[in-house]
Nucleic acid binder design. Structure first.
Length: 140
DNA sequence: GCCAACGTTGGC
DNA sequence: GCCAACGTTGGC
């Protein structure tokens, strides 16, 4: 079981849209970055991830679960690109902002802080627990 | 709206 | 295979 972080601009694909897809989930398509794609290839069904709103809100707003392993990205004919499907699990009772993460010394190595441009990134188990605590997430 | 960081492209 | 030019992302 591994942990991840999915980043999206609200105007492109928001948490609310993700929630509206319900149990079926939705393709995390449109990723055109090799590093991000490689992480998606490593994902397994059941892995959990944070859903992060970039640019305006800059906060982790919810938790998602990988519900389909990597497969060709249906938004392009280019077979280099693959994506996974994710479904919303639950929102964070208290969203954790980028600022909050920067203020927490134990999160200083988070990829989110150190490589802000990577749209799909790994999260360590320790980081996962800290952010869940900060966000008021109870049992999943 | 600006700019720094980064990834990709293409000429050599 | 190097590197300059360019485009994109995302924090500020």
């Amino acid at each position: 079981m591994r942990y991840w972080l999915f980043k999206s601009e609200v105007s492109t694909w928001s948490w609310d849209q993700q929630v509206a897809k319900g149990e079926a989930g939705e393709e995390w398509d449109g990723v055109r970055n090799y590093q991000a794609r490689n992480f998606m290839r490593e994902m397994e069904v059941g892995d959990l991830g944070f859903f992060y709103h970039s640019q305006k809100e800059k906060e982790i707003v919810g938790i998602v679960e990988v519900c389909a392993a990597a497969h060709p990205d249906s938004s392009t004919d280019d077979d280099r690109w693959e994506c996974v499907d994710i479904r919303a699990v639950k929102p964070l009772p208290k969203p954790v902002t980028l600022e909050d993460c920067k203020a927490e010394p134990r999160l200083k190595d988070m990829v989110l802080i150190n490589n802000s441009r990577l749209s799909v990134q790994p999260v360590t188990e320790a980081e996962w627990k800290i952010v869940c605590d900060m966000g008021g997430v109870g049992k999943l």
